[in-house]
């Protein structure tokens, strides 16, 4: 099945973290996932978590070079969230639940496996981040997550100039790297 131009654009927008596109996908799919989770032993909090994780899987997928979605975005998101929720139920030992499907389902095992591997490294990085302390944490987050330019960071963190902030950033990076590998090589 070929995707409509509109859906392709949605995915490109998602890969670029376009706010409006994210909002659109939210609006069109959120209630579907809420229904899925709440009708199958979950709370609305669970639904929010699952939707978020499903969106991350979709985001990861959209960033893969040359990726293609062989179904509608809606079907994909539903299938991913369904699988994620089943896994969660199994973990909570509420297994054996049979989900009454309200949508078409496709196999997403590979994508979920990839996501889980990503998740492991994500958590290791998150832990390393939580351990480096301040101002390193905020400094690296400002630069890498919020993509702030160096001169602005120098301003915010009261460094005399961008070069000093940069030196500090590299020192922090070396520490983060050590913490990351300490756990990465262990796991």
């Amino acid at each position: 099945m070929n995707l409509s131009e509109e859906e392709k654009q949605l995915l490109v927008g998602l890969a670029n973290k376009d706010n409006q596109i994210i909002e659109l996908i939210y609006k069109e799919n959120y209630s579907m996932i809420t229904n899925l989770v709440i009708n199958n032993n979950g709370s609305s909090d669970d639904a929010a978590d699952i939707f978020q994780e499903g969106m991350i899987v979709l985001f990861e997928k959209s960033k893969q070079p040359g990726f293609e979605l062989h179904c509608q975005l809606k079907t994909y998101l539903y299938s991913v969230c369904r699988r994620l929720w089943l896994k969660k139920l199994q973990q909570q030992k509420k297994g054996g639940v049979k989900i009454e499907d309200i949508e078409q389902v496709i196999s997403v095992e590979e994508d979920i496996e990839l996501h889980e591997r990503n998740q492991v490294n994500f958590t290791i990085m998150e832990n390393a981040m939580s351990k480096i302390g301040e101002p390193c944490k905020s400094l690296l987050e400002a630069y890498y997550i919020h993509k702030k330019p160096m001169h602005q960071i120098a301003d915010e963190f009261s460094y005399t100039n961008a070069d000093n902030a940069k030196t500090q950033k590299y020192k922090c990076l070396v520490r983060l790297k050590k913490l990351f590998f300490a756990q990465y090589k262990n796991g």
Binding site: I22, E23, Y26, K27, F59, N118, N121, Y144, I145, H146
Partner: peptide, 21 residues
């Protein structure tokens, strides 16, 4: 680190969107 930052930023946007909606 790049992958982490991307995901982190994306989650940030998701939360913003979700709060707004």
């Amino acid at each position: 680190l790049d992958k982490y930052s991307e995901t982190k930023h994306f989650i940030h946007l998701l939360n913003e969107t979700s709060s707004k909606l």
